[in-house]
Computed example of a mutant assay.
Amino acid sequence: MKTPLILASLATATAMIFALPAFAADSAQDFVDKATAGGMFEVDSSKIAEGTAHDQAVKDFAHKMIDDHGAANAKLETIAGEQKLTIPKELDAKHKADLDTLKTAKDDVDKPYVQMQRDAHSEAVTLFESYAKDGDNAQLKTFATETLPTLKMHKDMIEKIAVTGDAAPTTSSTTPAVTTTGTTNPAAPVPGANSFTEEQAKTRIQDAGFTDVSALTKDDKGIWRGQATKDGKNTMVALDYQGNVVAGAN
């Protein structure tokens, strides 16, 4: 019978579709849409961070993003015009929400900006790698290939800032969540509007050395709380909006 063979083929095709990277582009226009939205967000968010961040390394990074992504955006717009493709004029809903989070941050923009940049560059590298390999437009494939090393460099830079800079999350419940001068900051976890998704929260907690992260819920103070394992022991764990991961927090 041919039916089982057909069903098996359909199952294989479906599996291949779902195996594609979440941020891959399936057409030239799709790539332009996603790359433009990401590039615009890089510039707009970095303009906010350059003016309001506390950590000089974050400010310097933001300035570089404005220069590098500004140039890449202009190049992409030129290529898209030549290829008769449409350039989006506004950010998508997700990037608009992230930008609003930075605009309304009252005290410390460093940590949310750094985390957004980590996420954005991870997505951008995936998008550009995929299109450079399998894209359907020669000029855009060349653009993706030529831009990819810069994106990877940005990704490495922001990861180092996240780990070593003032914007790095703390893992001690007695360390102030924000480094400032002449003020007393509350111990982490710090209440505040939390822009981390559940998956991002889980990843941040795992990055801090925890495993078996489960039962994550965001409380009315904007703090993600759940259970995890570290050093072979089960413990309660919390993640605040600044990225601070605290073990044993109630």
Rank of each mutant, 00 (worst) to 15 (best):
K89F: 02
E90M: 13
E90N: 12
A93D: 13
K94N: 08
H95E: 07
H95I: 10
K96G: 08
A97Q: 15
D98N: 15
D98F: 15
D100R: 13
L102D: 04
L102C: 05
K103I: 08
A105C: 04
A105D: 07
V109G: 02
D110K: 06
D110Q: 08
K111A: 11
P112I: 07
Y113C: 00
Q115I: 03
M116F: 14
R118G: 00
D119K: 09
H121R: 04
H121C: 00
A124P: 01
A124F: 07
T126F: 03
F128Q: 00
E129L: 03
S130T: 11
Y131P: 01
D134M: 10
D134Y: 12
D134C: 01
D136A: 10
A138M: 03
A138K: 05
A138R: 02
K141T: 06
T142L: 08
T142G: 04
T145Y: 03
T147Q: 06
T147D: 08
T147G: 02
L148G: 07
L148D: 07
P149E: 04
P149T: 12
L151C: 04
M153Q: 14
H154Y: 07
H154G: 03
H154P: 07
K155Q: 15
M157N: 14
I158F: 05
I158K: 01
K160Y: 05
K160P: 03
I161S: 04
I161E: 06
A162C: 11
A162F: 07
V163M: 09
V163K: 15
T164P: 01
G165S: 15
G165C: 09
D166M: 15
A167C: 09
A167E: 01
A168S: 14
P169F: 03
P169Y: 01
T171Q: 13
T174Y: 01
T175G: 05
P176Y: 12
A177I: 00
T179L: 12
T180C: 12
G182C: 13
T183G: 02
T183D: 12
T183K: 13
N185D: 15
N185F: 09
N185C: 06
A187Y: 12
A187I: 08
A188F: 03
A188I: 02
P189G: 06
P189W: 00
P189R: 07
G192K: 09
G192C: 05
